[in-house]
Every structure is written in C-alpha cells, then in structure tokens.
C-alpha cells in the first residue's frame, strides 16, 4: 500500500494556445516526502500543481494520486480526491467577504457540511496551530498583514486534515524574518501532521529549509531531481546556475533589450 507513490505524474503536457508550458513532466512523490519544485518564473511550476488539482486539465500524460488515475476525474470523483489536498496559495487567496474563522472553516462547512459551531471550534484550534490567537477570528482578511494572511491560508489548508499539502511560493512577498517564520511553520506542520508536501518556489533558502528532495523544472520538463543535501553537487549546470542565482550560464532569460 505504502509502496504506491502518493502522487505520480507521467509525461504530463499542457499547452496554452500555441505555447507549450509543460513538455512531458515526470515526477514521482512518495508518501511522507517533502518535495520542492524549483525553477524560474514562467517555467510551469504553478501549472504543474494546478494540473494535479484538476484546476487545469492536462492535454497529455497521466496523473495518479494514491494509485488512482485522476487525470480526467470530474464531478463527485474529483471532489472525493480533492478532499485529500490542502493548498496554500501565493497571495493567500483568502475570501475577503468572509471573516478569518469562516475562511479557515470554509472547507468544513461548505465541503463537508459540518455545523457552524463545531467548525468554528476546529478553526480556532487550527489558528492556534499556526500561532494565531482566537482574538483575530472575527476580523476580515484585509485587516491582517501579509505574513498573518499566509498563516491563515496555512490554517485553512490544514483545516480538513489533508494527506497532501501544496504550497505555492510560500515566502514570496514576505520580509526575510517572516519568510523564516513561515518556513519553520511549514517544516514543523509537515513533520507533525505526517503529510506529503509539494512546494513550488524560486527562493533557494526556503527550498533548503522545507524540503527533503528538490526537483528542478526548466522549459516544461524536470531536468534534475535529487535529495536536498546533494543539490550543491548536482553536476547539472542548469541547477548550479539557478542556486547561484547568476545571470551567466546555460539558462538564458528571455529579456528583450
């Protein structure tokens, strides 16, 4: 049972109009792993996550979650496999018409039909897990700072006890200290809950902190994949250039002069 990969992508291709964004992504993620996908802007990191979640539909290839083919899942089958997931969005993506606790409890109330009172208790519990007090439960998202919104987003992602957590650029837009706080929070959450985690980022500090394995996406393909410890000795010039953050190397930025 535990030998089946938790998430498996095989030859996933996705094109938007004439632009090929994913050109055959192969990636296998085992249960309990924390994988970070690195890569420059526009290399298809977000698209990869959205294909797994069925927000975007892959044109070719297959996606399996816990051994089940979900490539073309729809309706109630899709709802069922989406219950395994929790996702932290880049901007938090909190619902601004709802209060903080209603945001955290949203999946419990709308998705699972839990009574509001019980859902509120769970929401406050989850807020405490990400270091937020019950005082802010009735505020609206706009009243919180960026870092706090990220925490609320994390609380919402873990509210329904998912098996798999997705993090989309968890540290983008935060100051270095808050970024470190969020990194630690993610690492401890993943460890404590025993979930499988997939993050996408171009922040190498964050990638090293939260991952056990790193995969690099370049031009719609995974060009390197290995344990986090070995990334400095990857022997791959693309990876080396990326982690050095240098303009010199095989990766050419498409900058028009």
């Amino acid at each position: 049972m535990n030998d089946t990969p938790h998430i498996q992508l095989k030859g996933v291709k996705k094109r938007f109009g004439s632009k090929l964004v994913l050109d055959g992504v192969d990636l296998t993620i085992r249960r309990g792993e924390s994988v970070v996908i690195i890569g420059g802007s526009g290399t298809g990191k977000s698209v990869t996550l959205k294909c797994v979640l069925g927000i975007l539909r892959a044109d070719e290839g297959s996606i399996h979650v816990a051994g089940e083919d979900v490539t073309r899942a729809s309706g109630s089958k899709r709802d069922a496999y989406l219950r395994k997931f929790g996702m932290l969005f880049q901007g938090g993506a909190l619902f601004d018409s709802l209060s903080i606790w209603e945001n955290v409890a949203f999946g419990l109330i709308q998705g699972r039909g839990l009574p509001r009172k019980q859902a509120r208790e769970t929401a406050i519990e989850k807020l405490a897990m990400v270091g937020l007090s019950a005082d802010i439960a009735n505020l609206s998202p706009a009243e919180l700072s960026g870092g706090m919104q990220k925490r609320v987003g994390l609380a919402r992602a873990i509210a329904a006890n998912p098996e798999i957590l997705f993090f989309d650029e968890p540290t983008t837009g935060l100051d270095p200290i808050m970024a470190d706080v969020i990194n630690k929070l993610i690492a401890s959450t993943v460890r404590d809950l025993g979930v499988t985690a997939v993050s996408i980022t171009h922040d190498m500090v964050s990638a090293r902190r939260i991952s056990s394995r790193i995969a690099m996406l370049y031009k719609g393909r995974i060009i390197w994949d290995g344990p986090t410890d070995s990334i400095d000795n990857s022997g791959n010039p693309y990876v080396d250039q990326f982690i050095r953050g240098s303009a010199e190397g095989p990766i050419r930025m498409e900058v028009r002069s």
Binding site: L53, R83, G91, A93, F95, Q110
Partner: peptide, 21 residues
Amino acid sequence: TMRVTEQIDALTTLATNPFKY
C-alpha cells in the same frame, strides 16, 4: 477579483464548486 487573486481556485481546492457557490 476573485479570479485574479486565485480565490476561485481556492474554492475548488476546498471541495466547493465555484459554479454552485
């Protein structure tokens, strides 16, 4: 605004159909 701030995608990941909601 919900679309560009990914709130509609967030609905989907919370097992709520955006059309229904």
